[in-house]
Write a protein that binds this DNA or RNA. Structure first.
Lengths: 244, 244
DNA sequence: CGCGTAATTGATATCAATCAAGATGAGTGG
DNA sequence: CCACTCATCTTGATTGATATCAATTACGCG
């Protein structure tokens, strides 16, 4: 495990200086462990820290009055959690551990200091928040305007891509790590219907499932089925590189 | 019209210094006009500027392969446009003028300078991007997990709230300014069904419509129907006030 | 080895989409 | 000022995708 996941993540965007690395390390000094299923915080909790996820998988979600759940985002090591703390006194969403996890809490004032001392890092953080936002617009478009089959396909590809960022050895085979109910709650379907769509994708030869592992058998077809856009192919932080 | 819309907007969050105001004014030096229906830029265009919307209403959307459209966000004066420019070489979304508009373009390098010279302003911008993100999670939850009626109600309230930020005199009566088709494309419904839901809300006495103006007749009921959460009530940028 | 969660499958119900006409209304040219 | 036109709104009939309800079945874990 790198001593700063955040540095590892941002290094994918811009080359970091030693000073910048040091600064990022400060965000991951403390450590807190969470058991599978434990909530880091819940909707409406007073939260004044932010967190870096260091180990494990988490998710953020909201619960509606009728008890239904909308999963907003799956979280992987290097992701920043609770950025909403910057504006909201209470959390707008719940964050829960899907597997056993380790997170590093840091105070929002420390972030303010980081912005002062490392402006280029601040820009990189802003930029990386844009990736999060765009991922969410993609999901919104999927949920609002595509079929159940397309949404399932899109989520499978999204999860594979995110896992591959951390582990480049991942190709077309990976462990999904979430239940069909969670898939449904992320893309606005019932677990039953997710099951049927997975079966359909399997019967059509786009995916295969075995022993908890998923294989993207025909990635090209799956991408077409999903309305897939590879956002990672379009990164450009070049313009930040030259900053004095 | 204020000489910096952005300053006006951020002033709602933190008290700005003279230097900060000056800096923000630089972002709105240039000016570009757009006719109703004109695209500021389209998906996949190379964009290296950001923009501040100064006058008018705009929207951002994506088009899917089958021609359907998902409206991501409605834009009002003071909103920053094309923040995705910070990471993506090409625009992930189209931005179009709903009414005649004025925008102020500024180069992303200018933003980088702003972050260097006014770190507290940078924090305020980050914070304000969180509002955008949370608004989007609310929409995602609505589209993924609520009925057509609830989504329509939620959008009406969202639009009213956003307009009220700019014009506090707005109470329960306002001009919607968008078509039923646009409503549908924002919340994942057909225009036909939006029409039926508006009628239903009207018949149930939650809203009234006349001469292009919408009245929220029973706001409490409408909020319940919409699963409404007033995010504005929960702001907290106090912690930034004391900076250095 | 048993227990509980997750996955699977079939039957039926519903909500929203689609298809198909009109009606209304704002803007435009004569 | 009127007639025309195109967009928007409205309404009804029908279809279709996904939810709901109801059992099983498979399987990871203690």
């Amino acid at each position: 495990m790198p001593d700063s996941w955040l540095a590892t993540r941002l290094n994918g965007l811009i080359a970091l200086t030693a000073q910048e690395r040091d600064m990022l390390r400060r965000l991951e000094e403390r450590e807190r462990r969470l058991r599978r299923g434990a909530a880091l915080f819940s909707e409406n909790d007073r939260v004044s820290d932010l967190f870096v996820l260091r180990e494990g998988t988490m998710m953020s979600y909201v619960l509606l009055d009728d008890g239904s759940r909308q999963i907003l985002r799956f979280l992987f090591p290097g992701d920043i959690i609770a950025t909403a703390t910057l504006v909201y006194a209470t959390a707008p969403e719940t964050v829960m551990a899907i597997t056993d996890c380790t997170v590093s809490p840091f105070d929002r004032q420390v972030l303010a200091e980081l912005v002062s001392s490392c402006p280029r890092l601040a820009m990189a953080l802003m930029a990386s928040e844009q990736r999060v936002r765009v991922a969410m617009t993609d999901r919104l478009a999927a949920v609002g305007r595509t079929s159940a089959r397309a949404r399932v396909a899109a989520l499978l590809l999204e999860l594979r891509d995110r896992m591959r960022e951390l582990d480049p050895s991942i190709g077309t085979v990976f462990a999904l790590g979430i239940t069909q109910e969670e898939i449904g709650d992320a893309i606005g379907l019932t677990a039953v219907h997710v099951n049927r769509m997975l079966r359909q994708l399997e019967e059509q030869g786009l995916i295969a499932r075995a022993a908890g592992r998923l294989t993207l058998v025909d990635e090209a077809k799956l991408m077409r089925a999903a309305n897939y856009v590879d956002r990672n192919a379009k990164f450009d932080l070049e313009w930040l590189q030259v900053a004095e």
